[in-house]
Amino acid sequence: MHLLTASNLSVFRGERLVLSNVSFSLPAGGILVLRGENGAGKSTLLRTLAGLTPLAAGALKWDNEDALNDLPSHAKRIAWLGHLDAVKPALTAAEHVPAAALAAVGLSAYAELPARLLSAGQKRRLAIARVAASAKPLWLLDEPTTGLDAASVLRFLALCETHRQGGGMIIASTHTPLELSGVEVLTL
C-alpha cells in the first residue's frame, strides 16, 4: 500500500513565499482536502505535489523515497485535474477519454460531439472522466466541482469513492464540502 508524506514543504512563487512548512501524510485510500482563502496556496501546493512547481525546502516522499527525484516516474503516479479543463475543442469527447469513463460522468450521449460544443460543466465532467480513466494512484484535483450541477457532483463523489476503495489517494482543493467519509482537511 502506498504512502505519500510531505515534510515541511516551502514554496516560492516569484519573490513571494507562498507555502511555509506544510506537512501531511496520506495513506492509500485517503483523501485530503485543502482549504484556505483565495491565494492561500492551495493550487501551488497541488502543483508542487505534481512536480510542476519546484520545492524551496522540505521533502515529498512516496513510499519513503524522494518522490521528486525522478519527475517523469513521479508523473506516472499522478492524475491531474487543474483549474483549466485541458479539453481540446477540435476533438470529440470520445477522442478525449474511453467510452466507459464517459458513461461514468454521464456524457455518453455526447461522445461524438466536438468538445467545443460542450458546456463549461460538461467540459469539467470530461476532464474528471480523464482522471477517472487514468488508473493512476494519486489524484490531484484543483477545484474539481467548479461548474458541476448537483447530479454531476454526486457522480464525481462516487468516482472518488471507487478510487479510494481500490487503494487510490486523492488530494483536492475545493470550497465545496465533499460528502465523503474519512476526509482529512489541511487548512493553508
Binding site: A50, L52, P72, D85, A86, K88
Partner: peptide, 15 residues
C-alpha cells in the same frame, strides 16, 4: 498553455 494541456503533457511521463 492556455487550455491547461501543457500541465498534462508535462505529467504524461515523458520528460
Amino acid at each position: 498553455y492556455e487550455d491547461g494541456t501543457l500541465d498534462l503533457l508535462l505529467l504524461s511521463g515523458l520528460p
